[in-house]
Design a protein around this nucleic acid. Structure first.
Lengths: 180, 180
DNA sequence: GCACCCATGTAACCAGTTACATGATTTG
DNA sequence: CAAATCATGTAACTGGTTACATGGGTGC
């Protein structure tokens, strides 16, 4: 079976316990979004596809008069999830507009690149702060999600630190001003 | 003017000296692709659009009977590039299927997650090796591209090291086996 | 009563990749 | 002469975001 990683996000989340599309989205926004984001425009169609393929099962569970479908993983879905976990990961992608600006920073005096680095640093600092905010929740759950979250904190700190070092390097004029 | 970051990759590369679409693609593959990739399917249409907007200028420069158009940046293009460099970066995205697998690794015995981490580490080791291979070229050019390249090496080493540490943590059973 | 959250869904759009077609030139 | 490389381009597709539409429930 050839599913997209996003499908496995859904599969992996409904495995732990049954959830609605709305819940999946809000969990994604607090957890996997740092390394794998997903929007409603993906999640709802994905749930339908997975349901048609028999990998998840939806049950109507309205809260009052508010309709709501809760999905749980099937045996086939669990098997599929496990088989994916056993295959080596394929995609690793990064799109960092900040690094791009830095790469081309030779077209402008160095002050501009310092501003770019400061913005990049602020972004990563903010990411770290957000992860620290949800860390207590992850701690009580433990396991791999906690490991990944702590990895995210380390990564953010590393990146922010790199930005700071580069800011200094530029400020002290250590960088050779060769033009590329 | 609202251009995509990919447009600025093209603009930034033809600024240094005039290049053909083919050359742009091969430079991207050796430099920016680690944080901003681009395919022919983007580069050629982008060159046409930039040319129509008057930000680059194409000149026919065939090599023998082989047609070839070399683009250089215009005054307007340079102004546009600089104005982009002065605006703060917006997009930072990461899609890491390995971290996703690790996040859901609770569905399988820990050996499987060690294999995932090893694959991730191998990927980053390979990236570092590739950057080291082109480092001498970047060194002779110096400036910001070298800074970014060295940042890439540091990043790859950091990530590979994290993978290794997590492999050990799992192997020695340090990770709490709480299920999330 | 209003704002906000829960909840589902889709249509239009955008960015980007893959695969292909075409053809000249260089190098072993 | 074959294979690799230089060179340009596009059509089909995929993955994903944004914005919108709709409507019930909860708390101030």
């Amino acid at each position: 079976m050839e599913l997209s990683p996003t499908a496995y996000v859904v599969l992996g989340l409904v495995r732990v316990n049954p959830r609605s599309g709305y819940e999946i989205k809000s969990i994604v926004d607090e957890t996997t979004r740092f390394f794998w984001a997903a929007s409603y425009g993906q999640i709802y169609p994905e749930l339908r596809k997975l349901s048609e393929a028999g990998l998840v099962e939806g049950v109507d569970q309205p809260t009052g008069g508010r309709r709501r479908t809760v999905y749980s993983i099937t045996e086939a879905g669990l098997a599929e999830l496990r088989s994916w976990l056993e295959r080596p990961p394929e995609t690793f992608e990064m799109r960092d507009e900040g690094l791009l600006k830095l790469f081309f920073a030779g077209a402008l005096p160095p002050e501009a690149s310092v501003a770019t680095l400061q913005a990049m640093r602020a972004h990563h600092d903010q990411g770290v702060a957000e992860l620290r905010r949800i860390e207590p929740m992850a701690e009580s759950a433990g396991g791999f999600p906690l490991m990944v979250l702590r990895g995210g904190i380390e990564f953010g700190e590393f990146f922010a630190d790199w930005c700071e070092r580069m800011e200094h390097q530029i400020a002290t004029g250590t960088a050779e001003e060769a033009e590329a």
